[in-house]
Design a protein around this nucleic acid. Sequence first.
DNA 1: GAGTTTGAAACT
DNA 2: CAGTTTCAAACTC
Length: 769
Amino acid sequence: MDTPERNQISATLSKFEDSPVFNYINSLSPIKPVKSVPISQTFNSLSFSSPPSVFTSPHVSCLKESRFLRRHIPLGTWKPKVSSEDVNKVHTSEEETLADSKRAHHNKSESQENTEKRASIELSSEHIKFSVEPQQSLKYDTCGSPGYDPSICDHEDNTLLELPGEAAADAGYVQEGCKTDSVESEVHLQEICQMEPKSEDPDCYWDSLIPDGSDMLIFNSPGEAEAFKGLMNKPLDPSIRLSDFMSVLPLSAVHNGRKMFIVDSVASGSEHEIGDHCSQPTIAATDTDQTRDNLADVVLVTSNYNENANDQLVSVTHRAIRRRCLDFEMANVQKKNSDDNSKGSSSTSESDERNVANEKQLLPAKLNQRGILQGIGLHLNALAALKEYKGIQIENLSSGRQLSLPNSTSLQISTSQEQQHLSLVPVSSERDLDSSDNGLQPTEDCSQPSVYMAGEDFNKNSPRKKKRKLETPGETEGCKRCNCKKSKCLKLYCECFAAGVYCIEPCSCQDCFNKPVHEDTVLQTRKQIESRNPLAFAPKVIRSSDSVPEIGDDPNKTPASARHKRGCNCKKSSCLKKYCECYQGGVGCSIGCRCEGCKNAFGRKDGSAPVSIETEQEETEATDKGMPEKASQKIEIQNTAEDHPDSAAMSTPLRLSRPFVPLPFSSKGKAPRSFVTTISGSALFASQKLGKTNSLWSQSKHFQSVPDDEMQDILLGDTSPITCIKTSSPNGKRISSPSCDMGSSPSRRGGRKLILQSIPSFPSLTPHP
DNA sequence: GAGTTTGAAACT
DNA sequence: CAGTTTCAAACTC
């Protein structure tokens, strides 16, 4: 699809205001009746920082990096509101099928070419998608969420992966799955337009909204809506904390301090129509009066709050704007005046993050020291640390994040979790490695947890989601689901807990405490466990690889190795079953493993080629279960050729060298849980927090097996070269350090440096040179 | 779906 | 630190 030039967008928008169409739109009711459709709540991890929840929900998926946050908003039926020619258009037809959508979209793009512009709406029976092409937009995909339709997700994965440079293409780019997104967005834009105060200075208004380089964040998930709702329901309180918003909004939306649109279209399953409730005037008044000067950057559009929609909407909008002021502006303010407590207090982590980004240099020192507050972490915690460092009072982020709303699906940010994730920076997921050309982009992974979904609530609202989840094993299964009965999901036995995610609906756990409601307990428990083993929540599988070959590395050689951090201890399974964490994680065993009779198909402990006659037999078994024989063979070959027999960490090139090969795991197509863990923790955070994946990526290498001590050093900015990081678990179990075998590879060095350096650039939405 | 096996996690 | 117990996933039937 053709995407109008980004820079054109602003202009276009401006034009919008003046255009008759715009007026027309404005005249329309801001919100059209919409049937809500169960939506996948998940928030995709972004490549930008987004608020992690204490535990992110495991069911996140499809992470894509693009400058544009895109969320799927499956609107059941969305009624097209406007079609405009000048502006470009909105093609709407209520009942267009996807095919129709495509067509429409296509047409749109054509028109866009002509006009350069902007919003186009297409409706699809099921999904309305939107695409906005602000210069800098974040794309937020929600695919992979529990209820998310895998097909779409997959599709998007393929289609949406975009190189930074190609971001612009997004808007225009529409594929079936993706296209719909575009449509949705467009629709939302319309709504926004409608909602936005007309009376205001159009110039200022739109400028503030979308204009140059604005980042657009679109929220479609019901959960978000709910979360907002909760916040909004509260009386407008100046003291509202940024964190409150943060819990709902992805940091990414904020971190740049750019304009942000928040479009919330559906309350899951809700069939209410809101349109009538929203009154533009009210909103306009609110926004304009107070924020005019500030040029509200955040526009929240809710399409369907059932009750009191009007009020809520207004308040939401208002707050959103407020938030904007606090965040974006605050960040700046803080920079300038750390003294400004009034704002500072209200400023939330977002600001902090931004600050961090800008002042990364500060991070190192303080992070570590305090770093370890609840977990350690760069992200919010880091920010917190930073704040403290600056003498700014740190706000208890966690408290703020928690959404009190019952129904809120909110994205909860958990301080501890975030910290941990950051500190541990897990390795990228295999996919990431594979797909990312340079590791810059975290790929989305269905398994990535980014959002907590109130399972119960969620279910209630959207049984369909549940169904979908169940129906889409590949995707959903990637997500953790526990079945704990006695551990209350507060032990590492619990996969959800271990993965740093809250238990959600699909879990069959009993007496589960691993829920946002028990955040305190969860955090406490985590602390306790971490005190025992700082790496307890680190990804089990550590991958140290850069997707990008490093200088000096043999191109043919897989740059990375992946190992189980602790190594396995298998005795009977021969490391050929998922009992074996190494195998489960799709990595070979290393000398760090204490396994007996290792036959790990991904690489034996002794470094020998994985496949032997015996193994083959075994593998046959595996194959039956879904492991492609070829894959295994391939693996073997690679191992043989590449592994260093003597090297402690036998590399498992598997993932790096080839595109993601389905692991031999379950016939169900379920990704190894280990992977999930890794992915969820690392990739997600990396992307979310740092925005630039690559930086994290690199970091991840280091973090992978870096003990806290070292980690601290690193964070502190200790630049002393670390040739090989030795790690050991508290209990004496060995932790392989994959990187070691690489020797003092450039990657390592590079990664190290990156740790600090990369952090800084907060999610700058602007393209990276 | 119930029962068994397995190995990590937790405990002593 | 080693041995034991507990636990839940993986697996089998």
